[in-house]
Simulated scan of single mutants.
Amino acid sequence: MTHTPSSPAAPAITVFVEGIGLLGPGLENWAQGREQLQGVAPWQAARCALPPPMALPPAERRRAGAVVRISLAVGAEAVAASGLPAATLASVFSSSSGDAVNCHEICSALASSDRLISPTRFHNSVHNAAAGYWSISSGAMATSSVLCARDGSFAAGLLEAMTQVAVEQVPVLLVAYDTDYPEPLHRARPIPDSFGVGLVLAPVRSEHSQAQWTLEPAGCLSPQPADRLEDPALEKLRLDIPAARCLPLLRGTALRQSGRVVLDYLEGLQLALQVAP
């Protein structure tokens, strides 16, 4: 009788959060968002204010829409907090819908009598446009991955970024973002506003580390419901915008808590992480 040894368990994936960027409705940056998630300051409803992408050359800056503005803003904030050079960072960009306004404008043009599409619109229509503009603005030449998993796009991006950190043993920038569609597409995809989060994740702890996140491969996919936020307004924001599904994870980081955080991922299957300060 032969004995077949069991396969060794996959090792845990641990990353250290070196920098965070945040921008959304009533959220101007991570410092403000951290206070709101801690319960120190109340969240107040306000349209997301998208800053101009000043790091881009003037020609590209004129072409930049909401997707580029929000992704570059949160990416730059996260990288600045990490103290790492942006040009050396691999990146993962994740969005549930891509450039919603640009999609609307192209559909409108195709529905018109002449059906002429602006070259700029066509240029910005690809799902990796934000990643391309990030490369231009930061001079980054490292690997960049771009993905979409509809309402689970943040969790999918986080899973990809953490895996890259573990396998390549290099810091990785994750940028997750969504923007709102104009009507009539808004009725089919009712995202109310823009929201973006940037995270610099590293394989080793540093003086900049704000949290430690761990995935246990054997138990990271869970049927347990995703964590909710106690603040009704922030919980509504989490549910309304797919990229905002990151908020329970950011809350654990803001509160410097240790414990398990469950995030929305696929239908009936969530992503669970261990969080520690």
Rank of each mutant, 00 (worst) to 15 (best):
A149T: 14
L159P: 01
Q169W: 04
P182E: 01
S135K: 07
A156V: 10
C148M: 15
D151M: 13
D114M: 02
R187A: 02
S144A: 14
V126R: 03
D178I: 13
F154D: 05
R150G: 10
Q164M: 15
G139T: 11
W134A: 06
R115D: 02
P171L: 07
S118H: 09
I136C: 11
G157Q: 10
G157L: 13
E183Y: 00
T143K: 07
D114E: 09
Q164W: 11
A130H: 08
L116C: 04
H123F: 14
V165P: 04
Y133D: 03
S137Q: 08
T120N: 09
G157T: 14
E183L: 03
N124G: 05
A142W: 08
W134F: 13
S137F: 09
R115P: 00
L116A: 10
Q164E: 11
E168S: 13
N128P: 04
C148A: 15
A166N: 14
G139K: 13
V165Q: 09
R189V: 06
N128G: 11
M162A: 13
A140V: 04
E183N: 01
S125A: 15
R187Q: 02
L174F: 03
T143S: 12
T179L: 01
A131Y: 07
H127W: 10
G152D: 12
L147E: 12
L116N: 05
A176H: 00
A155K: 07
Y177L: 08
D180P: 00
L116G: 04
P171M: 10
Q169M: 11
N128M: 11
A130K: 08
S153P: 02
R115H: 10
L147Q: 12
P171T: 07
A155E: 05
Y177H: 04
N124Q: 08
R150Q: 14
